[in-house]
Structure formats: structure tokens, C-alpha cells
């Protein structure tokens, strides 16, 4: 463990006192190290590994199958990302509200928000997904206008519930971690509690919240494949369909699903590295 990673001493200056400056050159796209190339190669080897089975007849090799279906599969993957981003946006907005609600001086509101958070944080995501899929109608009527709710929209809502609860907890923890003296200073300058929260406390919380928030995003992205169970045409569903369309050949199983795994890995791994880098950067010195 490097010295930077050692836990902060109690007498260390407050971490929030450090200025927050992003140096784009260092925090930009994570550099690709040799280890990445190795992983990439391993992935390709896995994909092509079963290619030996070809040649005996006119059937496509696994690699050719992947190339042939890549546009469709990647459009499915884009759908996964879309779902994850929308779920994250909704969940973050709602979670901010619920997290602040938990900190409210109104005991009823605080209890309700606390209960919401606990409930959705401790329910399996898939169960929540099923609940939303089967409890929410396929269309709603607002002022006489019928709004269809396709499955993917419902799935997105289903994912945003646990996101909300987790974001709420992140917000609550971050706000709590700001020393109470900041509240005192703001109060003595005649800031109202609301102004203090939005102008002084939350801006200081952003960098504390960013790493866990990005971590959560990574988890949500990977969880979106669960939507295949409820019939959303995302990447995993399409992979299964492609497999069937290719005659369900057993030797295609590993390459096709390997391709899906690989796409998720390529997307989530940089996020993970970036998060780790941010964490190190913001670490209390």
C-alpha cells in the first residue's frame, strides 16, 4: 500500500480543505497499459478459440459469426448503455431528494425517506425489476393522452429504484461527513439552512460522492442485462437470438457470450480505473 493510501490521521487537515482541481491531462481517458493489451488479446483468443470447428463445412467460423452480427449485438449493447444512463439520471435525481429528505428536520419526512432507502437498498435488483414490469401498466393515460410504456422504459424505472436508494445513502453519508463547523460558519453569516446546503455543503460533497457514484454506475451497467429476463431487447437477449438464428451451434456459445462479456468489460473497466484514480486523488493526505 502506498503512503497515500494509508488512512487519514485524526489530526490531518480536513480533506475538504484541499482545492479541487482536475488536471485534464492526467484525468482524461485512462491510458492503455500493456496489461490492457494482454486482456484484449486474451479476449480475442477466447473468441477465436473455438474457430477450429470451422472449415469442415460451409458454416461460418465463430469469428465470422460475430463479425456478421456485430452491428446488431452492438446496437443491443448501446441499448444497455442507454438504459443504464437513464436509470442513473433518474436514480440520481430521486436519490438526491431522498438523501436530503433523510437529513430533513421534519421527522416524518426523514423517517419516510429512510424507510424508502432501506427498502430499495436491501431488495434484489431483479425482484424490483419484476415488480415494476408486472405492476406498472403497459400504458398510462394523462389528461386523455395515452402514453405507451414499453418494456425497456419500465425496466429503466425498475433499475432506477435501487440507484435512487444507493445514491440517497451516498448523499447522506457525504453531507454528514462535512464538519458541523461549516454549518455554524454559514449560520453566523446569515445563510438559511437551505442556502447552506446548496451553496456550501453540497458543493463540498461532490468530490466525495463522485467515486461511489461512478462505482454504482458501473454496477448498474452490468445489471442492465437482467432486463433480458423480462424480455427487453438488449444485448444479452439479442445474443441468445443470434445464437438461435445460427442454429444453436454449441461451439458458438462461448464466442457469442464472450463477446458480450468483452463489450461490458471494455466499457466498465476504464470507469473502474478512473474511479480508483479519483479516489486516490481525493484521498485525505
Amino acid at each position: 500500500m502506498s503512503p497515500k493510501n494509508t488512512p487519514a490521521r485524526a489530526d490531518a487537515p480536513l480533506p475538504v480543505l484541499l482545492p479541487f482541481r482536475i488536471e485534464p491531462t492526467r484525468l482524461g481517458t485512462p491510458r492503455l497499459a500493456p496489461v490492457h493489451a494482454l486482456l484484449f488479446g486474451a479476449g480475442l483468443a477466447l473468441l477465436a478459440g473455438t474457430a477450429w470447428a470451422q472449415a469442415v463445412d460451409t458454416r461460418l467460423s465463430p469469428l465470422d459469426v460475430i463479425i456478421k452480427w456485430a452491428p446488431l449485438l452492438l446496437s443491443g449493447f448501446a441499448f444497455n448503455i442507454l438504459i443504464s444512463m437513464i436509470a442513473m439520471a433518474i436514480g440520481t435525481g430521486a436519490g438526491l431528494g431522498v438523501g436530503l429528505g433523510m437529513l430533513s428536520h421534519n421527522p416524518v419526512l426523514a423517517r419516510v425517506c429512510w424507510a424508502l432507502t432501506q427498502f430499495f437498498r436491501n431488495a434484489p435488483w431483479l425482484v424490483l425489476l419484476f415488480f415494476v414490469m408486472f405492476l406498472v401498466p403497459f400504458q398510462i393515460t394523462v389528461f386523455g393522452v395515452r402514453i405507451p410504456l414499453p418494456d425497456w422504459v419500465k425496466a429503466t424505472v425498475g433499475f432506477s429504484l435501487p440507484v435512487m436508494a444507493n445514491v440517497a445513502e451516498i448523499v447522506r453519508g457525504a453531507v454528514r461527513s462535512v464538519p458541523s463547523t461549516q454549518w455554524e460558519a454559514a449560520e453566523s453569516l446569515a445563510f438559511t439552512p437551505r442556502q447552506t446546503m446548496w451553496r456550501i455543503i453540497l458543493p463540498q460533497c461532490v468530490k466525495r460522492m463522485l467515486p461511489p457514484w461512478m462505482n454504482l454506475y458501473s454496477l448498474v451497467t452490468m445489471a442492465t442485462v437482467q432486463a433480458s429476463i423480462v424480455g427487453v431487447s438488449e444485448m444479452l437477449t439479442l445474443t441468445a437470438q443470434v445464437h438461435t438464428a445460427e442454429g444453436g451451434r454449441p461451439e458458438l456459445f462461448a464466442p457469442l457470450y464472450g463477446f458480450a462479456m468483452f463489450c461490458f468489460f471494455l466499457y466498465c473497466y476504464p470507469i473502474d480505473r478512473f474511479t480508483a484514480r479519483l479516489e486516490r486523488r481525493f484521498h485525505i493526505r
Binding site: L14, V16, L17, L18, P19, F20, T181, Q182, E184, A185, A186, S188, L189, A190, F191, Q195, R199, I200, P203, Q204
Partner: peptide, 27 residues
């Protein structure tokens, strides 16, 4: 009534000048 604290309690995410400007501007 202005108050100054033992631990300064400046707002760490703002520059010195912004710290001085915040209350008159927003309050």
C-alpha cells in the same frame, strides 16, 4: 453581529475572495 471562530471555518471549495463575497451576494 459578525463572528470569527477558532478553526476559521472558511468554505474550502471557494477562493479567499469568494469566501468574502458569498454572504453579501447570496444573503
Amino acid at each position: 453581529v459578525g463572528m470569527v471562530f477558532q478553526q476559521y471555518n472558511l468554505f474550502p471549495h471557494k477562493t479567499a475572495l469568494q469566501n468574502v463575497m458569498m454572504a453579501p451576494m447570496h444573503v
